[in-house]
Amino acid sequence: MNPQSVNFKLSDYLSKGFELLKKDFGGVLTGFLVCFVMSIIPFCGYLGMGNFYKYLRKKSKGLPASPGEIFNFDDFMPYFILQLIVLGGVIVLYLPLALMMPAAAYISADNGGGGGLPFLFFPYMLVFYVVLFYFVLKGFYIPALISFKGIKDIKTAWNISTVMTKNNLLNIFLFSLVASILGSLGAILCGIGIILTLPFTYAANYFAYEDALQQIDKDEIAEIGTPETF
């Protein structure tokens, strides 16, 4: 691989996600439901997601794919470690808030019930979400690197992802926001409909991953020159 900042094609990924759904909606939906079942198993949510992306790759390329492949545990350990890191990060970010609550209540009591909590709470939550989104966006390509490139070391995957997302954080944020809104329309319009629309988010993400990995793949022939034909 040749890690570099990728050319993020927001609209292409959304349109290709819709095309894949139209092409094989039943297959994508079945895979999503199996992925959902995997997410119920403790510490297997990220693994199910990663395996679902492998399944979508086969579907998009017209290769035979069975939903049962999503119950594959070959990548369990890297996704397990990733989940522990995410959980630990959230706990670390929430810990100051847990310590802040008693102090805020005390200040509020001293002020006769006036504005101690909002004064501390809202600035902290703003910083909390900025930090959270920053790390989530910088690690956007980690699932693709684990599932498609077989990178088991989370630190290595993180380092590569940070290079790939350079100068693209806003585009990735907008893409994730639009894909999430479109994928959640089923819940907004009709609760059960989320099962029909949420697979779109995964399909769009898959195409974002696939295109980015193609951009960073080394073309060894291009690097050494076209070999002579004898």
Rank of each mutant, 00 (worst) to 15 (best):
F135I: 13
M49W: 09
K59G: 03
I194N: 07
T197Y: 01
L189N: 06
K138P: 03
G114L: 12
M38D: 08
C44K: 03
Y46T: 06
S60D: 05
D211W: 04
F173S: 04
F133R: 06
Y79H: 11
K138R: 15
Y124C: 09
A212E: 00
L117N: 03
A212G: 01
K138W: 12
F207H: 02
N7Q: 15
R57Y: 03
P42G: 06
S39Y: 04
A179R: 02
Q83R: 02
L14Y: 00
I91M: 15
C44E: 05
I91Q: 10
D110L: 15
A98E: 07
I146W: 04
L93V: 13
V178I: 15
L126I: 15
I151M: 09
D110P: 02
F8M: 13
F121Y: 14
A179M: 06
F207C: 01
K218I: 13
V37Q: 08
M101N: 10
L137F: 14
V90A: 10
V136R: 13
V34K: 11
L126V: 15
A222Q: 10
L99R: 04
Y209L: 02
V127D: 00
K61G: 00
K58M: 05
D217G: 00
D153E: 15
A109M: 11
M38I: 05
P199S: 09
V92G: 01
N167P: 06
L137E: 12
F43A: 12
L21Y: 07
I216L: 05
F133V: 13
F71I: 14
L29R: 05
G17N: 06
S161I: 08
T30C: 04
S39A: 14
G114E: 11
I107A: 01
P227A: 12
T165E: 00
S5E: 13
T156G: 01
Q83G: 11
T226H: 10
G17K: 05
F128K: 07
Q215P: 04
Y55K: 00
G191E: 01
Q83F: 01
A98L: 15
I194K: 11
N167F: 03
E19H: 02
F230R: 09
S184H: 05
L84P: 06
L99F: 10
F73V: 11
L117R: 10
K58I: 04
Q215E: 00
D12P: 00
K23G: 01
P78C: 06
P96H: 14
F76H: 04
A187V: 13
E228D: 09
A65C: 08
Y55S: 06
K166V: 07
